[in-house]
């Protein structure tokens, strides 16, 4: 139960941050990717702002034997840089540019602009299912 509440708090703060920063607005995200148009640098400030507390958290993490509310750390240990990683990133970038959305803002926008957000989220899950059944 404690873990579920921590995750709900983290998800809520994450969604609030997306909304406050303007990242729930697909046109603003697309504006960051639009170097030849009216470039909007806001996303760079969001990324910078998010990386600061996380960089500190990683330093703290190295000194901990286990997390505060769980039995052990479950962190990705893969260091492999392969075709899957690079091809996946290329495809994700195309979809991100086309729609102005990535998974976090798509889900957050279900509460703000439900119909278009739902169209994106249904397609997002369909794309994930396609990956699952073809790999």
């Amino acid at each position: 139960m404690k873990q579920v509440l921590v995750a709900l708090f983290a998800g809520t703060l994450f969604g609030a941050g997306l909304a406050y920063s303007g990242m729930a607005d697909p046109a603003r995200v697309q504006g960051f990717l639009d170097l030849l148009g009216h470039w909007d640098p806001t996303l760079a400030f969001v990324m910078g702002g998010a990386i600061i507390p996380m960089a500190i958290a990683w330093i703290i993490q190295r000194r901990l034997e286990k997390p505060f509310a769980d039995a052990h750390f479950s962190l990705p240990g893969t260091t492999l840089i392969d075709r899957k990683l690079t091809a996946g990133a290329v495809l994700f970038g195309v979809g991100w540019g086309v729609s102005g959305l990535c998974p976090g803002p798509g889900l957050a926008d279900l509460a703000i602009n439900p119909l278009p957000a739902l169209a994106f989220v249904v397609a997002l899950l369909a794309g994930m299912i396609v990956h699952r059944v073809t790999s």
């Binding site: 990683l85 996946g88 990133a89 994700f92 994106f120 397609a123 396609v130 699952r132 790999s135």
Partner: peptide, 16 residues
């Protein structure tokens, strides 16, 4: 939205 969603869904699973 649909094209973007499909590519983001497939690409993020493939690219972890």
């Amino acid at each position: 939205l649909v094209i973007g969603g499909l590519l983001v869904g497939y690409g993020t699973r493939l690219g972890s």
